[in-house]
């Protein structure tokens, strides 16, 4: 099954995603889309590593081009997170901006084809009204489109609030 988890920063998405995944059979693959540099990312990555320890995940660091990632065998996949993958696909090192939508969706489809259970973590980036540059506004809009498209494909969608999953679509296994 495919489950999409959304919510704001620090709301417990990662912990709950991992809790879901350990309910599903091994092997478990963790697709980490966050690049290990920039604001606070090392701290966040280290925290996520500690959270995953002992839960039987093998990690693939994949910042772009998830579409061409070949998993060793079928199993349970945790993709974290769509907001990083989208930003990585949208802005390249040269400062070019391109439409990340097709590549993010193709990446998710590739993971779906190769897994029995897919848990995807995304983020609610559209709920403030900051005075952002146009490229950030475009990012917010495309994140909204991607989240909606993922939710349409997912069997279950939940928003995490205070670590509590609020079901928005379907039923969660736990």
């Amino acid at each position: 099954m495919m489950i999409l988890l959304t919510g704001g920063s620090g709301c417990g998405k990662s912990s709950y995603a991992e809790k879901l995944c350990v309910q599903f059979p091994s092997p478990r693959w963790y697709i980490a889309a966050m690049r290990p540099f920039g604001e606070g990312s090392e701290e966040k990555i280290a925290r996520h590593r500690v959270l995953r320890r002992g839960k039987g995940f093998e990690t693939f660091e994949r910042y772009t081009d998830v579409e061409n990632l070949v998993l060793p065998q079928r199993g349970t996949v945790l993709l974290e997170c769509i907001c990083n993958l989208t930003a990585n696909e949208m802005y390249d090192d040269m400062g070019n901006v391109s439409d990340p939508y097709p590549r993010v969706m193709a990446g998710v489809e590739a993971l779906r084809r190769q897994s029995d259970n897919l848990v995807i973590v995304t983020n609610d980036v559209g709920s403030d009204d900051g005075d952002y540059p146009e490229s950030v506004k475009e990012y917010i809009r495309v994140m909204g489109r991607i989240n909606a498209a993922l939710a349409a494909r997912a069997d279950a969608v939940a928003e995490l609030v205070c670590g509590i999953p609020i079901v928005l679509k379907g039923e969660l296994p736990i």
């Binding site: 704001g8 920063s9 620090g10 604001e39 606070g40 983020n123 609610d124 980036v125 900051g130 952002y132």
Partner: peptide
């Protein structure tokens, strides 16, 4: 915690 993740470390940490 919702909205674009701020680049300012203190604000970002405060949210998280």
């Amino acid at each position: 915690g919702s909205g674009v993740i701020p680049t300012d470390t203190k604000i970002r940490l405060g949210r998280e």
